[in-house]
Design a protein around this nucleic acid. Sequence first.
DNA 1: GTCTATACCGTGATAGAC
DNA 2: GTCTATCACGGTATAGAC
Lengths: 196, 196
Amino acid sequence: MTMAKRDTYTPDSLLAVAVAVFNERGYDGTSMEHLSKAAGISKSSIYHHVRSKEELLRRAISRALDGLFDVLEEPGAVTGRAIDRLEYVTRREAEVLMDELPYVTLLLRVRGNTDTERWAMERRREFDQKVADLLERAGADGDLRADVDIRLATRLLFGMINSIVEWYRPGRGGAASRDEVAEAVVRTAFAGLRKP
Amino acid sequence: MTMAKRDTYTPDSLLAVAVAVFNERGYDGTSMEHLSKAAGISKSSIYHHVRSKEELLRRAISRALDGLFDVLEEPGAVTGRAIDRLEYVTRREAEVLMDELPYVTLLLRVRGNTDTERWAMERRREFDQKVADLLERAGADGDLRADVDIRLATRLLFGMINSIVEWYRPGRGGAASRDEVAEAVVRTAFAGLRKP
DNA sequence: GTCTATACCGTGATAGAC
DNA sequence: GTCTATCACGGTATAGAC
């Protein structure tokens, strides 16, 4: 904390600082005073860049959601067998999560106390449903193991992907790289899903 | 909210109400006013049962940790091949998580803002380490797939188990039961871990 | 673009009557 | 065991000078 990030702030560079603090202390556990200390400017100066604390949350969450939804439009996600599209989406979602780590982390921790948070949860549900549909089709194609429960499998798959935010830290020497993590997720998940 | 849970409270019955609210709004997002409404008694009456808001958190977290650690002492966790002990622990942890759902949920969401929260995180790390050791031994025994990275696998395994708190709701008709969920977790995880 | 000063309200917690 | 009344503090946000 109390890092001097000199030069004047843009809304985006201030957002980056804010999101880091939100993730460390939790959104509700972060006061404007905390943000002011971390950004190296006064509380009231923050209000020159954003209208409210909640606006910071909204901007961060939007960025995360955009990244996740964009994957569903990529060629690998819209053509081919459902099971292959599912594997593509799984890998890409893991990658986006790591590329936009702080923003997605914040999104995943939202609880629903404000309108912004409820909107975020609603969009997340939409997203999850689209992936669940893919899994459903893979099942209809006969490409899933017989003993797989679709709803349960969807949840465990997301559980594995989303848990990455709890421990992945970019560029940490000795630990797994972005691509290794994505590969491990895909391999582990599809060992339990794909018909041998 | 605003449920009348008449009869006088014991510390434990009050805790149950508080934990439910903490999980819905987040600990920092919950005020004593929220708790008072949910419990149907005044703010000051709550202080007759507990010394502080943080004490409620500590009690809840302790209960969760006790449940999780106790599994590691059970016969199935201390005798046999490491890979089998790991499978036993995985299933039992999933079960304990579902049996003590609200308490474990709260534990998993702690961020580290207070002494209580940092203590909880420390104990969680201890716990994770013990399971990681089991995975390590299973690897040394040659019971894991060759392409499994131990550290990564540990994290994905916990990610899957812990994600249960995000969606499992006991006794919800039509959805998977406690035992079905535990079985699915074990099956899915070990398909990616155990040497075929 | 940043500051100091401040308005105003909700917070966790206590005092003391019943 | 529960209540009303109250405290001291920190919360978000604004006003207006530089």
